[in-house]
Amino acid sequence: MRHVALYQQPLTTTLADHPYIEDFLSSFGLPVAASNNSLEHYLDQLNPDLLEDLGLSREQLQRSLDDFLNGMLALRKPLDKVESLTIIGGHNKSGEAEEVELTLQPGEVTCIVGPTGSGKSRLLADIEWVAQGDTPTGRKILINDQVPDSQWRFSTEHKLVAQLSQNMNFVMDLTAEEFIQMHAESRLVTNPQEKVAQILEQANMLAGEQFCPDTPVTALSGGQSRALMIADMAFLSKSPIALIDEIENAGIDRKKALNLLIREEKIVLMATHDPILALMGDRRLVIKNGGIAKVIKANEAERRNLQRLEEMDNQLLALRNRIRSGETLEQL
């Protein structure tokens, strides 16, 4: 689709309405300034030798710009809300039918349990790929009770799934504030400052120890990093599904972290063997030999035990703090 008006009106208007065009051109090493000339005129007068040096051709640049504009304009359109995600069973590694049909809704937490190699990752990958019987498990995934548009598979703007796993680290050399700012800009949110402040505040509420906006992200502790990643995922990621691979029990309030994602209406899937996290979920999928072998619904007795587990956990936490402050544990 060509956006004719956009190419023919004066650059002053085009750049004011679509500031990202300037960013696009500068990422190809091409400076552009507002003027009365049109974007088309600007592209036509580019020196072919300069383009050759940049490894570009006029046609390719034009094609990329068209694709880019289509993507940007799509990003402005609100996305169909994901009201439900349905997993229709396929078969396990031995070819036995997986007799499951399961519907997950926003605000629900589903835990995935099973030994390493049992097929947890494959289940998460089936969801991410919106499998239609075309993966090794033969599973089908429906969104809002329908076979979803294939845009979910390849779109970078509208990714279905945001992921958080144990080995993840920040690698950018930026402060926490700059970092979130950069993420907000890449998502084209309308009120970046407000979002950044909100995320930093929430992350600090989750983290055991406070950090400042100007702390470099690489200097955050494990718990602070997790807290910032979860707050960012809750408020900035457009993906309606959050996949979490274990939240370690250090320096982060895991209950608050999950509640934040629930409040932001994410469908949460969490691979965990931690009894507290597992009992916080609405249900547990037991994965065996590549298939969902069982679905356990959280029941009253388990909920009651959750309280006890939390007490035990708090006792351990208190001991941990005593160690941190240099005390001895001769008396528990």
Partner: peptide, 16 residues
């Protein structure tokens, strides 16, 4: 090994 936010920023830069 990198955060979701970094993945999203990186992919958007590639997309650009």
């Amino acid at each position: 090994i990198v955060s979701q936010a970094e993945r999203e920023v990186f992919a958007s830069r590639v997309k650009q």
